[in-house]
């Protein structure tokens, strides 16, 4: 359903050619109905990859194919319309827009009170307390993160990308989160890409991708990749500190 072909991304930087490379030559395929989990060290380039898929950043070279169509040159809005959804690592707050307003925009149609509540209940929020609240700075980090996930559920996109959805979410809710992803995949028959550092999330992956230092470092099934990831510092090929 999604294919990245030799995608590279750079920003303005201090080097001699005035560029800083963030991602280099990343190729990846995501099959229908699969869970792909992207992991790797902080600053490796995972969020950047997600932003490239959504069209928030445009690659310096390479191409992105979605359902057989080259979307490399398409805008965020166009990609959203084709069925790509994205939950930010750091959700945005809005002065003046309520949770219900945002869910309505996400769903692309008027929602009844019950429908709006339904999405919030999915992510473990006591809906009546939240539905008409402004999504402003009064929201706690974990609450905001849950609303962010609820938005993607409301969209019901074929391809949904979640950037560290578990960050800030308490342990109690963690189990439910995994169930949410599973039911989303079943409902949309699409694919879900999750950026995560969490072992429990890695365990549901059909494919694990390791991004480190701007490169695709490894890709494989969880059986192949997991033993490599959770090893000690001496033998770990992803540990980059002093040994």
């Amino acid at each position: 359903m999604l294919e990245l072909k030799n995608v590279s991304f750079e920003v303005k930087g201090e080097s001699r050619d005035g560029k800083k490379e963030i991602l280099r030559d990343v190729s990846l395929t995501v099959e229908d109905g699969s869970f792909v989990v992207i992991t790797g060290p902080n600053g490796g380039g995972k969020s950047t990859l997600a932003r490239l898929i959504m069209g928030i950043e445009i690659p310096a070279s390479g191409s992105i194919i979605f359902d057989g169509k080259d979307i490399t040159g398409l805008s965020i809005t166009e990609r959203a319309a084709l069925g790509i959804g994205f939950a930010f690592q750091q959700p945005v707050r809005f002065k003046g827009l309520t949770v219900r307003d945002i869910l309505t925009l996400a769903a692309g149609r008027e929602l009844t009170f019950d429908e709006a509540c339904g999405y919030l209940v999915e992510v473990g929020l006591c809906a009546a307390d939240y539905v008409d609240r402004e999504l402003n700075s009064s929201f706690s980090g974990g609450e905001l993160k849950r609303v962010e996930i609820a938005m993607v559920i409301a969209r019901g996109t074929r391809l949904s990308v979640f950037d560290e959805p578990e960050a800030g979410i308490d342990l109690w809710s963690f189990h439910n989160l995994i169930r949410v992803f599973e039911s989303m995949r079943d409902a949309t028959k699409g694919a879900i890409i999750i950026i995560s550092h969490q072992e429990r999330i890695l365990e549901i992956a059909n494919k694990v991708v390791v991004i480190a230092n701007g490169r695709l470092d490894a890709v494989g099934t969880r059986e192949e990749i997991l033993p490599e990831l959770f090893c000690d510092a001496k033998t770990c090929r992803y540990y980059r500190g002093a040994v």
Binding site: S75, F86, F94, L97, D101, A106, G108
Partner: peptide, 19 residues
């Protein structure tokens, strides 16, 4: 954020101002 929900830039501006 609003563009990732399917709005154009202009629609997104209107929503933000309206809110």
């Amino acid at each position: 954020k609003l563009m990732t929900l399917g709005l154009t830039r202009q629609e997104a501006e209107e929503q933000i101002i309206g809110g």
